Computed example of a mutant assay.
Amino acid sequence: MARAIARRLSARRPLRDARPRRGVGALLPVRYSYHGDDIDLDRTLEVLAERPRPEATDIVVRERMSARRAVALVVDVSGSMRGEKVRIAAATVAVLAAELSGPADQLAVVAFWSDAAVLTSLTEVTTPATLLDTLLRIPARGLTNVGFGLSTAHAILAGSAAPRRIAIMLTDSVHNAGPDPRLLARRFGELHVLLETDGEHDLPLGRDIARLGHGALHPVRTHRDVAPALTRVLSR
């Protein structure tokens, strides 16, 4: 069932070009392309001063653009990867693979328990099915060191030149090994928590990690909650 979920949700969307995309994001100056009406007067005058016969495309307007993204997915594999926990992991990997299908987007995956392992780096290309199989081959672990997973993800994102660097942690936030993860969360520019609520979980800790990491907490009880949560995260 997990593999079927991964196949269904990872259907590739049409490739976007590597340039910034119009939509949500920072308000940036761009050349007029017959839509947009917020004229950047100062920059437009600078262009027109050098063009005695200006064209419509010499006008500079301000539009919201979303830049290329680097995402580090941090997956809690402590305890038992069975039942709905596996299906949630499958949906998370698949949705991110589909959303980050642009040639300039990057995705890394980190698994953590009392230790942490990088399953794929930002520069590697792999399939959701391969990532899922790798996750499922990791033996069940008892202790949960949330801080280890966060520190590994932070190091990965620090090596990226992408304008938007996002960490997304999939966990129940039941932390029982290592230092307080709140201290590490403060280092992130954008850290979101997908909190698994289908079993034992620590809502206050998950909320604190997201808040200190300048992100948001998104409770997920079943795999059907994953896609809406990730859509909200990536459309910020």
Rank of each mutant, 00 (worst) to 15 (best):
H154Q: 13
D172Q: 13
T126R: 05
L217C: 10
S114N: 13
I166A: 07
P163I: 10
T171Q: 04
T144L: 02
T127A: 05
P163F: 09
L135A: 01
L143K: 15
A129W: 00
R221H: 14
R186G: 01
E99C: 03
G159E: 08
T152Q: 06
A185C: 10
T126L: 04
Q106N: 02
D172M: 12
I168V: 15
G142I: 13
G189Y: 03
I209T: 07
L132N: 04
S114A: 12
H218A: 00
D198T: 07
N145H: 12
L212K: 01
T171I: 07
L131I: 05
T130I: 03
G159Y: 02
V193G: 08
S114V: 00
H175L: 09
Q106R: 15
V193P: 06
R182T: 15
R207N: 14
P219L: 13
A158F: 00
P128E: 02
A216Q: 15
D105I: 06
D180A: 08
A162L: 02
E190H: 13
F148D: 11
S121G: 10
D180I: 04
E99S: 13
G199Y: 06
V110Q: 02
T144F: 06
G102A: 15
T127W: 08
T134H: 05
A210L: 08
L212D: 02
A210N: 08
T144E: 03
P128Y: 01
P204W: 10
A216V: 02
A185H: 10
L143C: 02
I166C: 08
E190Y: 07
L195K: 11
P139Q: 03
V125D: 09
R187T: 14
A161W: 03
H192N: 15
L170I: 06
A104V: 06
I209S: 09
I138L: 13
G159M: 04
A155S: 14
I209H: 11
T144R: 03
A177F: 12
L157K: 05
G102M: 01
A104H: 10
A108F: 01
S101K: 02
A155L: 11
T120R: 05
T130Y: 00
L217M: 13
D202T: 08
I168Y: 09
A155P: 00
T127C: 07
L170F: 07
R141Q: 15
A177Y: 11
E99G: 01
R165P: 10
L157I: 06
E196T: 08
V174E: 14
P128R: 02
D208T: 07
V174Q: 14
G147M: 05
A129C: 00
A167P: 12
